[in-house]
Measured scan of single mutants.
Amino acid sequence: MTYKLILNGKTLKGETTTEAVDAATAEKVFKQYANDNGVDGEWTYDDATKAFTVTE
């Protein structure tokens, strides 16, 4: 299944996707991606759209 990450960081904005077996796996991938790019903020998840959002 495809999951999307929407980044609303102070220095990094954009979107990326990942293929994962479930939302928990996608969340781990996205949190590592955000951490690697220096984005740390409030996380939300919308199951209807399979989209995670992180806002700094």
Rank of each mutant, 00 (worst) to 15 (best):
T25V: 07
A48F: 11
A24V: 10
F52A: 00
T25L: 06
A26I: 02
V39E: 02
K31C: 06
V54D: 00
L5F: 05
Q32P: 02
T16P: 03
E42I: 14
A26L: 01
A24I: 10
T44F: 10
L7K: 00
W43E: 00
A20T: 05
A48I: 12
E15V: 14
A26P: 00
G14C: 15
Q32G: 06
A23L: 09
L5G: 02
D47I: 09
T53G: 03
D22A: 03
D46P: 00
F52I: 01
V21K: 12
Y3L: 02
T16S: 08
F52G: 01
L12D: 05
A24N: 09
A26D: 00
D40G: 08
T16H: 14
T16L: 15
G38E: 05
T18N: 03
D47T: 08
E42T: 13
A20N: 03
F52W: 10
D47W: 08
Y33I: 07
E27A: 10
T55Y: 08
T2G: 05
G14R: 11
W43I: 03
T44A: 09
D46M: 03
E19R: 14
K4L: 10
D22H: 04
N8Q: 09
V21F: 13
E15D: 06
K4S: 07
F30H: 01
G14M: 14
D46S: 05
T49S: 12
T17N: 06
N35G: 08
A34W: 03
E42M: 11
G41Q: 02
D40A: 12
N37P: 01
E19L: 14
T17Y: 15
E27F: 15
T55H: 07
A48S: 11
T18W: 08
K10H: 13
T55F: 07
V29M: 10
A24E: 12
A26Y: 00
T11F: 14
K28M: 12
V39G: 02
E42F: 13
D22C: 05
I6V: 09
F30D: 00
K4M: 07
E19W: 15
N37M: 15
K4D: 03
Y33H: 04
V54E: 01
T2R: 13
T11S: 12
G38P: 02
F30Y: 01
A48R: 11
A23H: 09
K50N: 07
Y45C: 00
A34F: 03
G14L: 15
N37S: 08
N37K: 14
E19A: 07
A34I: 06
D36G: 05
A20P: 01
T49Q: 11
G38Y: 06
E56W: 11
E19M: 13
T49I: 09
G38H: 09
K50R: 14
G38I: 04
E56M: 07
G14A: 12
D46V: 04
F52P: 00
T53P: 00
A20I: 02
T2Q: 10
D47E: 14
K28L: 12
Q32L: 08
T16N: 05
G9V: 10
F30S: 01
Y3G: 03
A26F: 01
A24W: 09
F30K: 02
G41Y: 03
A20L: 02
E56A: 07
A48K: 12
Q32I: 09
K4P: 03
K10F: 12
A48E: 13
Y33L: 06
A51Y: 07
M1A: 13
A34L: 11
W43C: 00
E56G: 05
A51K: 10
A48T: 11
W43F: 04
Y33S: 02
T55D: 06
V39L: 11
N35I: 15
G38W: 05
K13G: 05
E56H: 06
G9K: 04
A34V: 08
D22P: 01
K31Q: 07
T17L: 08
F52V: 01
K31W: 07
K4F: 11
D36E: 13
N8V: 13
K4A: 05
K50D: 02
Y33K: 02
Y3R: 03
D22S: 07
N37F: 14
T55R: 06
A51L: 13
K10G: 08
Y45G: 00
D47Q: 10
G14T: 13
A48P: 05
I6P: 01
W43H: 00
A26V: 02
T16W: 15
K4W: 10
T53R: 05
L12F: 15
A51I: 15
T55I: 09
V39M: 09
T16A: 10
A23V: 12
T44E: 10
G14H: 12
F52H: 01
A51M: 13
D46R: 03
A48W: 07
T16V: 15
N8H: 10
T53M: 09
K28D: 06
T55K: 06
N35M: 15
L12Q: 08
N8K: 11
G14Q: 11
T44K: 07
A20D: 02
G41T: 01
T2V: 13
V21E: 11
N8M: 12
N8D: 10
T49L: 13
K28Y: 09
M1I: 14
Q32W: 05
D40K: 14
T17W: 14
T49W: 05
Y45D: 00
A20S: 06
L5M: 05
I6H: 06
F52D: 00
G38K: 07
K28V: 09
T53H: 06
K28T: 08
T17R: 07
N37I: 15
F52Y: 06
T55N: 09
T44Y: 09
E56K: 04
A23F: 13
D36L: 12
K13A: 08
N8L: 13
T53K: 05
T55S: 08
D46E: 05
V54Y: 03
D40M: 13
E15G: 07
D22M: 03
E19T: 14
W43R: 00
D40T: 14
D36P: 02
D36C: 10
Y3F: 12
G9E: 03
D47C: 07
A24R: 10
E56L: 09
F30A: 01
T16D: 03
Q32R: 11
Y3I: 04
T44N: 07
T17A: 07
Q32F: 05
V29Q: 08
K10P: 11
F30T: 00
T18Q: 05
Y45T: 00
A20R: 02
M1S: 13
T53W: 05
W43G: 00
Y3M: 02
D46H: 05
K28N: 07
L12A: 08
N35D: 11
L12P: 04
V39F: 12
A34N: 02
F30E: 00
T44G: 06
L12S: 07
N8P: 04
N37L: 15
T18I: 15
T11M: 12
L5E: 03
E19H: 13
N35F: 15
V21G: 09
L5Q: 01
T53Q: 05
A24P: 08
L5N: 01
F52L: 00
T53L: 05
L5D: 03
D36W: 06
G9W: 06
N35P: 01
V39C: 04
T2D: 06
I6S: 04
A23M: 12
N37V: 15
D47S: 12
L12Y: 15
N35R: 15
T25E: 13
Q32D: 08
T25F: 07
A20W: 02
T17C: 12
G41P: 00
L5P: 03
Y45L: 01
D22K: 02
A24M: 11
A34G: 03
G38R: 06
T16C: 15
T44C: 10
A26C: 00
K10C: 13
D46I: 04
A24H: 09
Y33W: 14
T16M: 15
K13M: 09
D40S: 13
T17K: 07
K28C: 09
T49C: 08
A26E: 00
D46G: 02
K4V: 11
K4R: 12
T53E: 05
Y3P: 04
A23E: 07
A23D: 05
E15S: 11
L7P: 01
E27G: 06
K13L: 07
E27P: 00
